[in-house]
Design a binder for these strands. Structure first.
Length: 410
DNA sequence: AAGCATCGCAACCGCGCGTCA
DNA sequence: TTGACGCGCGGTTGCGATGCT
């Protein structure tokens, strides 16, 4: 049961507004002000419905509207606001003088989504693209669509060779990218994830389990990927902000899937901690028993040796106006040089990366989809060993992105 | 140069929500 | 409680601009 139409459609014009119609609307609102949209068309002598008049005024005719392209600053502001507010376009628009919600919505769908994908960031979750699409998700977020009937592939950038295609985001579940280890299958890996965002939303953690064939295919298609993805079919497996509640359910799987349970029986212990900024080193733990598939382990070992290029994204946080950069690192020891070798990298990124502290404090390696390990470089060896990531640095309020730290213990 | 495909944006549509009489 | 109304949102459409062959 819908609402009654706002006007009689047979007596209204549709489509593009003429200059005369615009002028009539402007003149009327100048005289009488906004409001009473239902009665406005008749009073103004317009053959339009009130809703159309309102949209035309708000989105196009208002004198305080700012026309023209969005600036980089506006781009980043929209991205940040969207990470805080979601698709609340009117709220976002209220923070951008002269921009309308419709304008921002269109701009988001046509430009920023693509921009974020090119950075390896999911535009819905504002997290690094971690997940492999699965076929049985019910709340998936499709990649950005254009006006054409076919879905748009991820934008082409110089870094897409390691960026997965726009991935299916599973609401209320989080992906855990567990890096492979060069040690034996039975090695205990303590995986500590510290995920920080500048808001209190989206703080769940998802575990994604993929079947073995998918894992193999993924690893084959993305040789830089050094990870095992764990998929959970239990959508309630989420962590709360107090780091305390992981689902106690046992994550079972078919013979084609990696098998996990939360029983601590040696094997792979994953310490998973979700933190909101500001956060400290306090973590809670959930141990998951992994029965690794030797075939996958062996394949990953081979993949490690094939890694040559490393991708990262980082923030320039020398000032309060953080800017996100991404780039490619070829050399594990000379970051700035490697950065400038790649013409696709923004010049400012080279400056941002010229100091190890920038990287140490805020980089996430896109090879492994993991952040820099505390006191150790990323496992892909794309960072010099001298770089450090400390919880104190991660807790800086100027950081507004995901951190993932991992350590290995024996 | 012409035809076609694609892209970007303005505008529209249907619906839900909150407010108020 | 109900309906009118304003507002906002997600999705879609139509069309001009642009790029490609």
């Amino acid at each position: 049961m819908g609402r009654s139409p706002c006007c009689e459609k047979e007596h209204t014009n549709k489509g593009a507004w003429t200059k005369e119609e615009d002028q009539r609307l402007i003149n009327y609102i100048k005289l009488h002000g906004e409001g009473c949209w239902r009665s406005l068309p008749k009073a103004a002598g317009l053959l339009r419905c009130g809703k159309s008049c309102r949209l035309r005024w708000i989105n196009y005719l208002r004198p305080d509207l700012k026309r023209g392209n969005f600036t980089e600053e506006e781009d980043e502001l929209i991205i940040n606001l969207h990470s805080l507010l979601g698709n609340k376009w009117s709220l976002i628009a209220s923070r951008l003088p002269g921009r309308t919600d419709n304008e921002i919505k269109n701009y988001w769908n046509t430009h920023i989504k693509r921009k974020l994908y090119s950075r390896g960031i999911d535009p819905q979750t504002h997290r690094p693209l971690l997940l492999i699409p699965t076929t049985n998700t019910t709340t998936s977020t499709p990649p950005p669509k254009t006006s054409t009937t076919t879905s748009t592939p991820p934008p082409k950038t110089s870094t897409t060779s390691t960026s997965p295609p726009p991935t299916t985001t599973i609401t209320s579940t989080t992906a855990v990218a567990a890096t492979s280890s060069s040690s034996s299958d039975n090695q205990n890996i303590k995986l500590t994830m510290l995920m920080g965002k500048g808001n209190n939303n989206n703080n769940n953690m998802n575990i994604m389990m993929i079947n073995k064939s998918n894992a193999n295919a993924k690893l084959n298609n993305h040789p830089h990927d050094d990870r095992v993805l764990i998929e959970s079919n239990n959508s309630t497996s989420s962590a709360t902000s107090d780091h305390s509640n992981m689902s106690s359910s046992t994550l079972t799987s078919s013979s084609e899937q990696l098998v996990f349970s939360q029983t601590v029986q040696g094997g792979l212990n994953l310490d998973l901690s979700i933190g909101l900024l500001p956060f400290g080193p306090t973590t809670s733990t959930t141990s998951i028993k992994l029965q690794p598939q030797p075939q996958i382990q062996q394949q990953k070992q081979q993949i490690i040796h094939k890694q040559h290029d490393h991708y990262y994204f980082t923030y320039d946080h020398d000032d309060n106006n953080r800017k996100l950069f991404y780039g490619r690192i070829k050399n594990s020891t000379n970051i700035a040089q490697s950065c400038t070798e790649n013409p696709s990298v923004l010049p400012a990124a080279a400056a941002a990366l010229s100091t190890s502290t920038s990287i140490a404090n805020s980089s996430v390696c896109l090879c492994c989809r993991l952040g820099l390990q505390k006191n150790q470089p990323c496992r892909c060896n794309s960072m010099p060993t001298s770089t450090l990531v400390t919880p104190a640095a991660a807790a800086l309020p100027t950081h507004n992105y995901i951190y993932t730290y991992y350590t290995t213990t024996t």
